[in-house]
């Protein structure tokens, strides 16, 4: 499949959820899908997987800061030379997302990272143990959030 075909197939998959998504193409080889309903995220990813577009390259969290009170989570799929990004937005307080481990086992490391660095609870992820942070890291402190103060670790 060349890049145009990949984008056509992926757009076709996402179109079945057009009430819950917004699609754009920031660059010729990028497809950006805003997923407005979090419960539709897993079905869309299953749809991509069925079409063999499910190579998950990364899950990226971005804190938008306490003023906005929300965080972005980007699921980056990289079939061929195309980057398909699924975006969801979660609140900073009690953020929750469904785990992808059942469909994409390699998502586990990315999800554990999100869980401890951003404080997003991953529903269905079996482990809550730290992957990167020390065992004695204080509870409820998420270092990749914008308002993280390293001073908290000094005493």
């Amino acid at each position: 499949m060349n890049s145009e075909e990949i984008i056509t197939v992926a757009t076709g998959v996402v179109k079945s959820w057009d009430w819950a998504t917004e699609t754009s193409r920031p660059l010729p080889k990028q497809l950006d899908v805003k997923v407005k309903l979090i419960k539709e995220l897993v079905p869309i990813i299953v749809g991509l997987r069925v079409k063999r577009l499910g190579y998950l390259a990364a899950i990226t969290g971005i804190d938008l800061g306490p003023e906005v009170g929300e965080m972005d989570v980007l699921y980056q799929f990289c079939p061929g030379d195309v980057v398909i990004t699924l975006r969801v937005r979660v609140p900073r307080q009690e953020a929750m997302l469904p785990s992808l481990c059942e469909i994409i086992p390699s998502a586990e490391v990315f999800e554990r990272e999100l869980q401890e660095m951003f404080g997003i609870q991953m529903l269905g992820l079996h482990t809550t143990e730290h992957l990167y942070l020390p065992d004695d890291w204080p509870d409820g402190v998420y270092p990749m959030r914008k308002d993280f103060d390293p001073q908290i670790l000094s005493h």
């Binding site: 490391v109 143990e129 730290h130 992957l131 990167y132 020390p134 270092p143 990749m144």
Partner: peptide
């Protein structure tokens, strides 16, 4: 089981 982070330097931050 894998456990990482023993020398996490916080480069992204």
């Amino acid at each position: 089981i894998v456990r990482l982070g023993y020398a996490h330097r916080g480069i992204e931050k």
